[in-house]
Design a protein around this nucleic acid. Structure first.
Length: 430
RNA sequence: UCCUCGGUAGCUCAAUUGGCAGAGCGGGUGGCUGUUAACCACUAGGUUGGGGGUUCAAGUCCCUCCCGAGGAGCCA
């Protein structure tokens, strides 16, 4: 008999099936035993009756514990009493691996304990659902760009220089030299878009920020598209289209997962074009009026972002931040060197900034002076300056934080649950 | 780095004013032919994060160190 995955069990109704998996839960009523078996694609109830299986199989069933691995063979029946609507009447049960004192119990656990057991925790229902949503968000992102003719051009992870200062970089030894783990692939996407027009990179990035909040990881995945001849408005349009597509795909493909997570779907269904777009100065006026204690000219703190987005049911785009609180490579307004052509996307419901983007500086002289202004080593950026020497061109791009996006879609407040093995200031294991 | 909160059984937590260290879950044993985080009975399980101090007496008060969580700053 060949293995049937639980996700396909309906097609076997009335017939025989073989399930290979693990015990998710079990209950016994004397001579009758109810096994909840999961195989990664779903969970199915397997009913075992003492008089219908061999003595050995019954004895094996009696020694089962949470997460014992086993192979079940039996008849698939439709039964409303079973969770999921189908159950298997077991004819044979084969133990594969014992599970002694499985640490994650059926009741509550604390965060630290669960994170220590992340390798096992991901088997449980909610975590399983979040990571499946992550998979679908990643697929939506790739489909979105691939369908628009983008080339996936990955950036290096070892880098010799910092794009935005060295204080938040992880340093590592590199054959007697220093190297840093990449905190952004953006500088490498700029030559990429000159070669291919439309490119994106999508991979892990590293920030040694000593942040201890539910929105921060030291290792997180970032999507960074970069498009030649695209201006700031195009950049905002692209981010808007992308987020709409991600949400649409999640609603289409992750219905059961979002249900498991008890996500309020109405909050996702209203994520449609157009997103509100407000100028930085307009945002300042709103905050001053609200009296949050915000000082115009500063960057927004988390409470400011929340105060701004609370009026909207979809992501809020704030554009044209003061140049001095943004990165050196951002282009400024032609008639106003104090104002950068930048944009941030703030997710609703307090999930924070999920996209940060800008039009890039394409003038050689201005870029040179900015590198000087920011006290950055010019020789590390020589190759980057070449792009302005050999056929400079306007271009824009943004970075989207995958885990924050997944958290928002899932309605889960911790980014650490949106990645299989989170890396945080106080956590390097498992 | 700073602020706040916390660390008691395998897990989640309780312990009154400083006065016998407890419960639920999980584990073990037994029972139960339709369970839905099953249920019922019995049972084992403790260096109260480490060190020092005050006291007749410390889980509880003081000092110190370690670890964790939330937040700030910074960011996606």
């Amino acid at each position: 008999m060949t293995q049937t995955y639980i996700s396909d069990i309906a097609s076997k109704a009335g017939g025989e099936a073989e399930i290979k998996g693990w015990i998710a839960n079990f209950r016994s009523s004397g001579k009758l035993m109810f096994l909840q078996v999961r195989d990664g694609t779903g969970v199915i109830q397997c009913v075992t009756s003492k008089k219908e299986v061999s003595e050995k199989a019954w004895e094996d069933a009696r020694t089962l514990a949470l997460e014992s691995s086993l192979i079940i063979r039996g008849t698939v029946n439709k039964d409303d009493r079973a969770p999921g609507g189908y159950e298997i009447w077991v004819s044979d049960l084969e133990m594969v691996g014992a599970s002694v004192d499985y640490p994650i119990a059926k009741k509550e656990h604390g965060d630290a304990f669960l994170l220590d057991h992340r390798h096992l925790w991901m088997r449980s229902k909610k975590q399983h659902a979040i990571l499946r949503v992550r998979h679908h968000v990643i697929k939506a992102i790739r489909d979105f760009f691939d369908d628009k003719g983008f080339i996936n051009l990955d950036a290096p992870i070892f880098t010799p220089n910092a794009s935005e200062g060295t204080s938040t970089l992880f340093e590592t030894e590199y054959f007697g030299d220093k190297a840093y783990l990449s905190q952004s692939g953006q500088l490498y996407m700029e030559p990429g878009c000159a070669a291919f027009g439309k490119v994106y990179c999508f991979g892990p990035t590293f920030r040694a920020e000593k942040s201890k909040t539910r929105k921060h990881l030291t290792e997180f995945w970032m999507l960074e598209p970069e498009v030649a001849y695209m201006d700031l408005d195009g950049c905002m349009d692209l981010g808007e289209d992308l987020l709409c597509f991600i949400v649409e795909q999640a609603l289409k493909r992750c219905q059961p997962e979002l249900e498991t997570l008890e996500r309020d779907l109405s909050r996702l269904e209203c994520v449609k074009k157009p997103f509100p777009r407000i100028h930085y100065k307009e945002a300042c006026d709103i905050l001053v009026k609200k009296g949050t204690g915000f000082t115009p000219g500063d960057d927004f703190g988390a409470p400011d972002e929340e105060a701004l987005v609370e009026a909207y049911d979809r992501p809020l785009i704030i554009h044209r931040f003061p140049a001095d609180i943004k990165a050196f490579y951002m282009k400024c307004e032609d008639d106003d060197p104090e104002t950068s052509l930048s944009c941030d996307f703030i997710a609703p419901e307090g999930f924070g900034e999920i996209i940060g983007g800008s039009q890039r500086e394409d003038d050689l002289e201005i870029l040179e002076s900015k590198i000087k202004q920011h006290d950055l080593p010019r020789d590390a950026f020589e190759w980057y300056l070449d792009l302005r020497k050999y056929g400079t061109f306007p271009h824009s791009g943004f970075g989207l934080g995958l885990e924050r996006t997944v958290s928002w879609i899932c309605g889960n407040r911790h980014v650490r649950e949106a990645i299989p093995f989170p890396r945080m200031m106080h956590r390097l294991k498992p």
